[in-house]
């Protein structure tokens, strides 16, 4: 695209989801707004959604990526379950990102499970957006 004003995530559809039992979604909402401000269409699920529900919404909404926000500590299990549910729905190609309170020692396990990138509150929003854009093959 020659138009330099096109936002990096224009025309990308991204599901921001909160699996598991933690009840805080300020982080998820901040990420959702940052993605929108980069031009993405962001679908937000609300709190405490099951991996099966998240996979179904991702498929129904035809998204390019799912961002899982997890603060509960059970990120390894939830990422494994969500990836499995996506694969079962024939949508294993949907890119999965993970964000939240994720200790560094768990990063390799999540990468092994197929998380395309892992973000924590340390990461500047611009970096998060740039990484998502790069993973989705967006022009930037």
């Amino acid at each position: 695209m020659s138009d330099t004003n096109t936002p990096v995530l224009a025309r990308k559809r991204i599901l921001v989801a909160k699996p598991g039992l933690d009840g805080h979604d300020v982080g998820a909402k901040v990420i959702a707004l940052a993605l929108r401000d980069a031009g993405a269409d962001v679908i937000y699920t609300g709190l405490r959604r099951s991996p099966d529900y998240i996979a179904r919404v991702a498929v129904d909404e035809g998204v390019d990526a799912v961002g899982l926000s997890i603060l509960s500590g059970s990120h390894v299990q939830l990422v494994a379950d969500t990836r499995e549910a996506l694969a079962a729905a024939g949508a294993g190609d949907i890119v999965v990102f993970v964000g939240g309170t994720i200790p560094a020692e768990d990063h390799p396990a999540l990468t092994e499970l197929g998380a395309a990138a892992i973000f924590t509150s340390e990461d500047p929003l611009d970096d998060v957006v740039a990484r998502v854009a790069a993973e989705l093959g967006a022009d930037s």
């Binding site: 936002p7 995530l9 224009a10 959702a32 707004l33 993605l35 929108r36 401000d37 980069a38 031009g39 993405a40 269409d41 962001v42 679908i43 937000y44 699920t45 919404v57």
Partner: peptide
């Protein structure tokens, strides 16, 4: 930005 937050569902 041309982006959106889709929250109806």
């Amino acid at each position: 930005s041309g982006g959106s937050i889709l929250g109806d569902r």
